[in-house]
Design a protein around this nucleic acid. Sequence first.
DNA 1: TATGTAAATGGAAACGTTTCCAATGAGACA
DNA 2: TGTCTCATTGGAAACGTTTCCATTTACATA
Lengths: 365, 365
Amino acid sequence: MRPAAPATIKDVARLAGCGIATASRVLNKSGPASTEMRERVERAARDLGFNFNAAGRALQSRKSMTIGCLVPSLANPVFAEAVQGVQSELLGSGYQLLISCSNYDDDADNAAITTLLENNVDGIIATMVAPNRSTALMQTKQRDIPVSLMFHDPIDGMVTAYVDNFVAAAEVARRFAAFGHTRVGFLALRFSTSDRSRNRYAGFYKQCRTSGLAQPSLIEISEEDAHHPERLAAILASYPDVTALFASNDFLAIAVQKATRHLGWQVPQDLSVVGFDGIEVGRLLETPLSTIETSPEAMGRQAAQSLLNALQGLGLKQRPPLPFSFREGETLAAPNPKRTDDDRVAAQPSSVHPAQDQNQSRTNP
Amino acid sequence: MRPAAPATIKDVARLAGCGIATASRVLNKSGPASTEMRERVERAARDLGFNFNAAGRALQSRKSMTIGCLVPSLANPVFAEAVQGVQSELLGSGYQLLISCSNYDDDADNAAITTLLENNVDGIIATMVAPNRSTALMQTKQRDIPVSLMFHDPIDGMVTAYVDNFVAAAEVARRFAAFGHTRVGFLALRFSTSDRSRNRYAGFYKQCRTSGLAQPSLIEISEEDAHHPERLAAILASYPDVTALFASNDFLAIAVQKATRHLGWQVPQDLSVVGFDGIEVGRLLETPLSTIETSPEAMGRQAAQSLLNALQGLGLKQRPPLPFSFREGETLAAPNPKRTDDDRVAAQPSSVHPAQDQNQSRTNP
DNA sequence: TATGTAAATGGAAACGTTTCCAATGAGACA
DNA sequence: TGTCTCATTGGAAACGTTTCCATTTACATA
């Protein structure tokens, strides 16, 4: 037998012996109905296994009951957890989650937003490469579709769920100073395309100066470098005077720990490392990672809450930044006075990082 | 000014000076049209910034161009990566991804499937607690909606993208035997609710017997235990004769490494540990994890491919299991002959795991 | 020129829902 | 009994699209 077409509200009305309008009112509890009619309709719906057809509803009500969510990648647990947070916040709300990933690509970002818009999403939650200059995002204003960002610091009056990257990064500089470090560095992966990374550097830089540290070295590396400990080791070796490194995310910080072993350095004796994000695995390392602990899930939840409020007509309101905390870990300590720079330079591998010069760029914020 | 209602195909037709049907044919390239008409319509569409309305389309065509995806949780990178694989495979296909998470809850699983069905998804990709006895999943048959599972071994003729857990786990037993271990254990988190975990144990158990090892100890722990190294340590200490442990996933294996430090044991000298999944962070540990390496992303891709094929009317076909490999790592070695059991027992902390008895259950597959 | 064929085109129905509005009926009050 | 109210109820339009089918047009052939 061929798949029986699902029952429609018409079928329910016919079985209940009433008009379609009445059936709709009963099933939606959206209007008056006698007790008897109510019972007849509900019974009919139950008997037929009736379910609303979302398309019909969406067409008529001009609401898709769907929320679009765009993140760079789900392979990054930070974003995956955020989406998880969004998802769980949306759970009882009746809204469904439409997902898109950009793989950190600006064009893909815009294409994804456009697609979401074509799918009539009622709202959008996004983390993008450049939300401030996304043409696609402009259209949301025109169409009056609320947008709630995640991770981004506030820009252009867009509402966002975030931790204050500037302030958090400054905290790291303060800790470095407290331990007596003077030459420090900032390690970033996608510095040019990540406003978060740039804000972290800015806050770090500012506080370094305030605390009397030397201007921090900005070390930008490629994905390739990050995945090859020996390459990363060579890069690190080319900054022999840096005694503490702030990595713009935990994965980078973990990669640094791994790379230092290639150099025969000890963390934190020879090099202190602090990460950002506070991913769970950082705790499990033999030397637990010192890091800025954030809650991506909370960001997802807050973004979802803001959006739901807006969708209820309560307005889209910016909330204060989410809290972060410094997780002590064991990768931050005072610089080792016994080891001289020469010792460390001597331990450096013979192969020098080929792109070393480019990577030594020291940019001001 | 209030948000301008988006242009409809009617507007396009009017501006192009043709019938709606013609406009539709041109825009969809679904029928004949003169070159001149084609130009007029396309120009009108461009000028109006026309986009199809998904709801109207879905209603008429009875296709939502939407695929539902249900996973236990996105906080687990294994599933997050799988979804990422699904997502990227779907990218150019015109299908959108609707996401749901069950948090490993059977009822939530069924509720989620029902919701997806109500949203008229054209197909479903899922990893569930118990797909074989999901009543909601039955409905997909009735409505002729293709379903493609991920991670599950084949059951009930359902199509699934998976690695052969039984065979992969047997490989671990073989490696244990090759290194000369005789007393081994299997550590599981959600043994009773995870068919994957059970299949891994079954394969492991079988091969242990075949290779002449003692019957492996089945050690089932709670989420709580896994997060508290001292608790896990106490549990491990209660299996003093076990020299090699197969953890049913990498996180557990990493937790074990961490817990052993509480006992003063060295991995792999005092205890060999092998994980399952092959998550990236395993590589970054000071002692890189030995594990069965799989590709969740590939599973997601394959599941999506199968579904897309089915959606094109090519039929839903089971494909052979995806490959896995044994990642050497450094947490598997020969048992240390110098350390006696007594030594190790002596190192065990005084506090004994309270639920120890229950956890010592040794079940046959 | 008349006829036939194929290509191009448009009208209109249908998809499933919500909701406006008019119609019905019952009870209350004078 | 006759009006008036108010609660129920149902008809029908509208949402934006696709597609069947009929009509028109152009052109080639007899």
